[in-house]
Amino acid sequence: MSTAPEQQHPRVAVVTGGSGGIGSAVARRLAADGMTVVVHHAGRDDRAREVVAAITAAGGTASTEGADVADEVETAALFDRVEAAYGGVDVVVHTAGIMLLAPLAELDLADLDRMHRVNVRGTFVVDQQAVRRLRPGGALINFSTSVTSLAMPTYSAYAASKGAVDAMTLVLARELRGRDVTVNAVAPGPTATPLFLEGKDRATVDRLASAPPLERLGRPEDVAEVVAFLAGPGRWVNGQVVLVNGGVAR
């Protein structure tokens, strides 16, 4: 049973990147907890509609919204539409992000700039809108990565972009003193999503799967369970980057 403050309205959650592997699992999990879920996409509205269809088939309430998370005008308009449709916002889960890998010496700077725009600026823009609108008892959950501490080769630019997310999360939690809004980040380890598996051969996947003591890759549902806790009953967890990686050593 949730220990979040009682409210007269259904809780409303915006999940950016809600059409992706982890994002869709998060959207379905929050809907299972009784939240109205807005499934954001950045162009693949067909995938977002599939997530909404799965939620509504299970008896939940959901809708789709599209926006470029790094565009402050589009993102503000998205939140305006959500507030107009549902009366407010209680939870924002920012899963949207991209991962482009190469050794630092070989990475195309255009890829660095692209990741910075989506992962850093996009987080800043979404967080800005979120904290301006979240109702008391609300939660903002950003997405980081365990790679910031694992220091895996080829991940330098991606890890750097997520290190910025960590910093924003920790500072923002303290800036919201007195608002009754929690701000945390989850940092998944190797998780079996298309984003993670793309471009990796079987030997690499098997090696990464054997790293945790649980000896498997994470599943999107594993991450979604932690998000649901932070979005609901986990009110005393605030200003944290929560590693969700099955126990992979630093």
Results as ranks from 00 to 15, higher is better:
residue 186 V to I: 15
residue 67 A to E: 09
residue 171 V to N: 14
residue 219 R to N: 05
residue 227 V to T: 08
residue 250 R to D: 14
residue 137 G to S: 08
residue 199 G to N: 01
residue 216 R to K: 08
residue 78 L to A: 00
residue 140 L to Q: 02
residue 118 V to F: 03
residue 208 L to D: 14
residue 193 T to D: 05
residue 173 A to G: 09
residue 207 R to M: 14
residue 208 L to T: 01
residue 159 A to P: 04
residue 150 L to I: 12
residue 115 M to H: 04
residue 188 P to M: 11
residue 110 A to G: 08
residue 99 M to H: 13
residue 83 E to R: 13
residue 4 A to Y: 06
residue 28 R to Q: 14
residue 133 R to D: 02
residue 92 V to D: 04
residue 163 G to K: 00
residue 184 N to S: 10
residue 5 P to Q: 09
residue 208 L to H: 13
residue 124 F to S: 13
residue 187 A to F: 06
residue 6 E to K: 15
residue 153 P to S: 07
residue 87 G to N: 00
residue 93 V to Y: 01
residue 1 M to G: 12
residue 46 D to K: 04
residue 174 R to Y: 07
residue 67 A to S: 07
residue 144 S to Q: 04
residue 26 V to C: 02
residue 199 G to P: 10
residue 68 D to S: 15
residue 230 L to H: 04
residue 67 A to P: 08
residue 94 H to S: 12
residue 96 A to V: 08
residue 100 L to R: 15
residue 166 D to S: 01
residue 219 R to E: 15
residue 10 P to S: 12
residue 245 N to C: 03
residue 114 R to W: 06
residue 39 V to F: 02
residue 147 V to M: 14
residue 190 P to I: 01
residue 63 S to Y: 08
residue 32 A to D: 14
residue 17 G to F: 00
residue 193 T to S: 01
residue 16 T to S: 14
residue 18 G to K: 06
residue 16 T to V: 12
residue 72 E to N: 11
residue 173 A to F: 04
residue 46 D to H: 12
residue 172 L to Q: 13
residue 122 G to W: 00
residue 218 G to C: 08
residue 233 P to V: 08
residue 18 G to P: 07
residue 150 L to V: 15
residue 58 A to S: 12
residue 241 V to H: 11
residue 199 G to A: 03
residue 37 V to Y: 03
residue 23 G to L: 07
residue 185 A to Y: 04
residue 64 T to G: 05
residue 187 A to C: 10
residue 143 F to Y: 09
residue 147 V to P: 09
residue 223 V to M: 08
residue 210 S to P: 07
